[in-house]
Amino acid sequence: MSAPLRLGTRRSTLAMAQSQMVADAVAAASGRAVELVPIVSEGDVNRASLSQLGGRGVFANGLREALAADRCDFLVHSLKDLPTVQPEGLVIAATPPREDARDVVVTRDGTPLGSLAPGSRVGTGSPRRIAQALRHNPRLDIHDIRGNVDSRLARVRDGELDAVILAAAGISRLGGDLGGLQAEALGLAEWPTAPGQGSLAIETRSDIDPEVHAALAELDDEDTRVAITAERVVLNALDAGCSAPVGTHASLAGGDLRLRAVVYALDGSQRIGIDRTVRLAPGYGGETGSGNGADAADDGGPIARAARAGREAARRLLERGAADLVPRESTT
């Protein structure tokens, strides 16, 4: 009997829950048992603000070190926490089908974010969410918080905060129980989220047993990979960290990739946005919408076209002054 495959994961309740979902799917695909290997990341022990931690992969580095040292066979990451530069010797073997990419505002009584009273205390540790919240309602009192989903919800339930902003996918993966609190889903057109939000990444070593790699690859969803490629290329081309005030969302419809990217000032006072629509379906060339036709002859396939769309979106954002708004990171 083959030895169990070892899945490296952060120790948080959410990480363990989503890793168990992947473990069950990999076990079915490979015919081998999969055991979870909890690993402590820097982000789990360093309680500094996310804006101070920046884009240094604090939720990924410890896991990747364990993978490279053969203490596990593959990892499961929340893709939004993963730096855009792929380390040598490691590969993303699969991106399973994406869940809800939206953010939600959780309150005690369901008051929408834009209608919260002046001075309402809203908790989030994300510079992007802070900027977006202040743009929607400049009267808010933003509290920079860390902690797991349950602890954040408890701070609303106990009255310490009036609202928190969370990822819809995280709540869903934990069962969706808000314990009597109310959630307002924020539309992606006006509130684009972190590149890759709602997606998971299954990462392994490039020299892993081909049969293991093939089993992991069975979980890959091409539409998800195309969309997150465009989003993450925007972030990479802007030279911005994972926690920068950048919101992106890409979706596929009718053979088209529709990409929205917005860069915010940290205080929400300014934003620069762009929309692009790129034709992906085989047999079609060129672009529609805001494109200029530069990719019309591109035949590199959907992933290559998505990457080009992301680079072009970033270029146009920079031309419009995005560099003045985005904190730069050399280790994205």
Score class of each variant (00 low, 15 high):
9 T>V: 14
10 R>M: 14
10 R>S: 09
13 T>V: 13
16 M>R: 12
17 A>D: 03
27 A>F: 05
35 E>F: 01
36 L>Y: 04
39 I>K: 05
40 V>Y: 03
45 V>E: 04
45 V>Q: 06
51 S>Y: 05
57 G>T: 07
58 V>T: 13
59 F>G: 00
59 F>T: 02
62 G>S: 01
64 R>H: 11
66 A>Y: 03
69 A>K: 13
73 D>Y: 03
78 S>G: 11
81 D>L: 11
88 E>Y: 02
94 A>E: 00
94 A>L: 04
96 P>Y: 02
99 E>F: 07
102 R>M: 08
103 D>G: 09
108 R>D: 12
108 R>A: 15
108 R>L: 13
111 T>F: 04
113 L>C: 10
121 R>K: 15
124 T>L: 12
131 A>L: 07
146 R>A: 14
152 R>L: 15
173 R>M: 13
173 R>K: 12
175 G>S: 05
178 L>M: 12
181 L>W: 10
182 Q>C: 15
185 A>T: 15
189 A>P: 10
193 T>F: 00
194 A>W: 06
197 Q>A: 10
198 G>V: 07
204 T>D: 00
209 D>L: 02
213 H>R: 09
221 D>G: 09
226 V>T: 02
228 I>C: 07
230 A>Q: 05
231 E>R: 00
236 N>Y: 06
241 G>L: 09
242 C>L: 13
244 A>S: 15
251 S>A: 07
252 L>W: 01
254 G>L: 04
255 G>V: 13
255 G>Q: 11
268 G>A: 09
288 T>H: 14
288 T>Q: 11
289 G>H: 09
296 A>I: 14
298 D>F: 06
304 A>N: 08
305 R>W: 00
311 R>V: 09
313 A>P: 08
314 A>G: 05
316 R>C: 11
316 R>V: 13
317 L>W: 10
326 V>E: 02
327 P>E: 06
329 E>W: 08
329 E>Y: 05
